[in-house]
Design a protein around this nucleic acid. Structure first.
Length: 431
DNA sequence: CTGGGGACGGGGCCC
DNA sequence: GGGGCCCCGTCCCCA
C-alpha cells in the first residue's frame, strides 16, 4: 500500500512578506469566503457576511485567522511579534528539557530548583499560542499544528517511485526499505544529526524558492537536498532547530520524531518486563537474585553445616558460619586488640572506643550507638513499640494542674513552664 | 531494671 | 549465578 506523502499542515514561523503585496479587496474576499465557510459549518445554514462584525474576546482560532486577513499589516506585525515570542519560549522549553535529561547537570541541581523547572515546563504549554501563529495557507477548517509532519506521523516523502527520508535525504525504492532505514539510522538517535550547522530560524515556506541544479531544495545548514519545500522545512525543524514535540508519557523525555519516541517506549516496555521478572510475587520486593530471595518465603535451606548440622538458605551464610567453627577472627581492633570474625562487628566495636552515639531516642533525645539500643530503650523506658504506639504498661507523666498526660518528664516540664508558670515545679511520674 | 557489648544469622546489593 | 560486602535485628550475657 502506498504511504500517503501529502503534508498535512505548515507553520508560519515568521510572517510571509508575499502577503504584504496582497490587495485589500482580495483579503476581504478571502476573509468573507472563510467566514461564510466557518458559519456554514457551525450553523448548517447559508449565512451572509456582515462587514461591520466585531469579533468578541477571546478570539477563536478561526477568528484570529479572519482578522489577520482583514486587518492586514497591523495583524501581520502582531503575528510577527507573537512568532518571535513563541520562538523564544520554544527555545527555553528545549533548553529546560535538555537540562533535565542531562544526568550530570541533574546532579548539580538542587531538588528545589529541579521541581521548579519541571513545574515551569508543565506551565509553559505552547500549543495554544502556536495554534494562533498559523499559516493562512489552506482552509480554516483544518486543525493547525506547528510542525510539519506527514499524515501517518512518518517522515518519509513519497514522490512517485522513490521515498525520501527528510531527516537525511536518503532515497529508498520501497516502503519496507524506507522504514528499515528510519529504524536503523534514526530511531535510536536522540541528538541532532552530525554534519550540519545549527539554524537560528527556518525561513517561511514562501521564501524557500532556490532549487539546486538537480531541481531540489537544498538545506542551507547542511548539504542535504529535498524534493519539496515542506520536506526541507520539516528537516530543518527537526534536525537543525531540534524541535521536539513528542514527549514520553513514562519519563517525560522529549523526541523530535515519532520513530524516536516509539523506539524509546520500547526500552520502557523492556524495562517493565525486566522489573516484573525481578519482582517477588510473594512480597513484591525487587531482587536481583530472585531465586535465592524466594527461599525467604519457602523456608528452603539447602546448605547444611557438617559440624553442627545447622542449615542456611544461602551459601555465603554457611561459609561465614564455618569460619566461626574454625575460630577465624581476622578483624582485630587496633585499640584493644580484640578480634572479630566479621568486619561489621569490628566496626560496631570501634564505637565503644570512640564513644560515638549518633542514634538518638526521638522522645528524650538520649544517644545510643546501635539502632537496637534505641528500640529497646523506647520500649522499656517510654513504653513505645516499634510501630510507634504506646504500650499500656507505660506509667506516663501527668500535669498536676490540668491533669494532662505527657509521654516524658521533659514534655511535662515544658508544658508546666508554658501553660502554668505560676505552678512551675517539678512533676513526678504518676503510677 | 537498664545500658552496654559480643556473637551471629538474615537479607539486600554489588561485583 | 556465585560470592563477598554491608547493614540490620536478635539473642545472650554482664555490670
Amino acid at each position: 500500500m502506498r504511504r500517503s506523502g501529502r503534508l498535512r499542515k505548515s507553520v508560519v514561523v515568521a510572517p510571509e512578506p508575499s502577503r504584504e503585496a496582497d490587495v485589500p479587496l482580495r483579503r476581504t474576499s478571502a476573509a468573507q469566503e472563510a467566514e461564510v465557510r466557518l458559519r456554514k459549518r457551525s450553523s448548517g445554514a447559508d449565512v451572509r457576511l456582515k462587514t461591520d462584525a466585531v469579533a468578541p474576546e477571546p478570539l477563536s482560532k478561526a477568528e484570529v485567522h479572519l482578522r489577520r486577513i482583514e486587518c492586514g499589516p497591523e495583524v501581520e506585525r502582531w503575528v510577527e511579534e507573537l512568532s518571535e515570542r513563541v520562538r523564544c519560549l520554544l527555545s527555553i522549553r528545549e533548553d529546560i528539557s535538555r537540562l533535565l535529561s542531562d544526568e550530570s547537570m541533574r546532579c548539580r541541581l538542587q531538588d528545589e530548583l529541579l521541581r521548579h523547572l519541571k513545574d515551569l515546563l508543565q506551565e509553559v504549554d505552547l500549543k495554544p499560542a502556536l495554534e494562533v501563529c498559523v499559516s493562512v495557507e489552506g482552509s480554516v477548517d483544518e486543525v493547525v499544528e506547528p510542525i510539519v509532519e506527514f499524515d501517518d506521523g512518518s517522515f518519509l516523502e513519497d514522490s512517485g517511485d522513490v521515498r525520501t527520508c527528510f531527516v537525511c535525504g536518503h532515497n529508498s525504492p520501497t516502503e519496507e526499505e524506507a522504514n528499515e532505514h528510519l529504524v536503523l539510522k534514526h530511531a535510536s538517535v536522540d541528538e541532532p544529526l552530525a554534519g550540519g550547522e545549527p539554524l537560528s530560524e527556518v525561513k517561511p515556506l514562501s521564501e524557500v524558492t532556490k532549487r539546486s541544479s538537480r531541481g531540489k531544495y537544498p538545506c542551507e545548514a547542511c548539504s542535504r537536498e529535498f524534493a519539496t519545500r515542506k520536506c526541507l522545512k520539516a528537516h530543518q525543524n527537526v534536525v537543525h532547530l531540534q524541535i521536539r514535540r513528542h514527549p514520553c508519557t513514562v519519563c517525560g523525555k522529549r523526541f523530535a520524531k515519532p520513530a524516536h519516541l516509539k523506539a524509546h517506549l520500547q526500552t520502557h516496555a523492556a524495562g517493565d518486563a525486566a522489573d516484573a521478572r525481578q519482582r517477588c510475587e510473594e512480597c513484591g520486593k525487587q531482587n536481583n537474585a530472585l531465586q535465592v530471595h524466594r527461599r525467604v518465603h519457602t523456608g528452603e535451606r539447602p546448605y547444611c553445616c557438617t559440624v553442627c548440622g545447622m542449615t542456611f538458605n544461602r551459601k555465603p551464610s554457611l561459609n561465614r558460619h564455618m569460619a566461626r567453627h574454625e575460630g577465624r577472627k581476622t578483624h582485630a581492633c587496633g585499640s584493644c586488640g580484640h578480634a572479630f570474625a566479621q568486619k561489621w562487628d569490628l566496626k560496631q566495636h570501634l564505637l565503644v572506643h570512640t564513644g560515638e552515639k549518633r542514634l538518638r531516642c526521638p522522645i528524650c533525645d538520649e544517644g545510643f550507638s546501635r539502632r537496637s539500643y534505641v528500640d529497646d530503650h523506647m520500649r522499656r523506658v517510654h513504653g513505645v513499640t516499634q510501630n510507634g504506639t504506646q504500650q499500656d504498661k507505660h506509667p506516663g507523666f501527668r500535669c498536676d494542674v490540668c491533669r494532662q498526660e505527657f509521654l516524658t518528664e521533659q514534655d511535662t516540664q515544658q508544658h508546666l513552664a508554658e501553660a502554668h508558670p505560676e505552678a512551675n515545679r517539678r512533676q513526678a511520674p504518676h503510677n
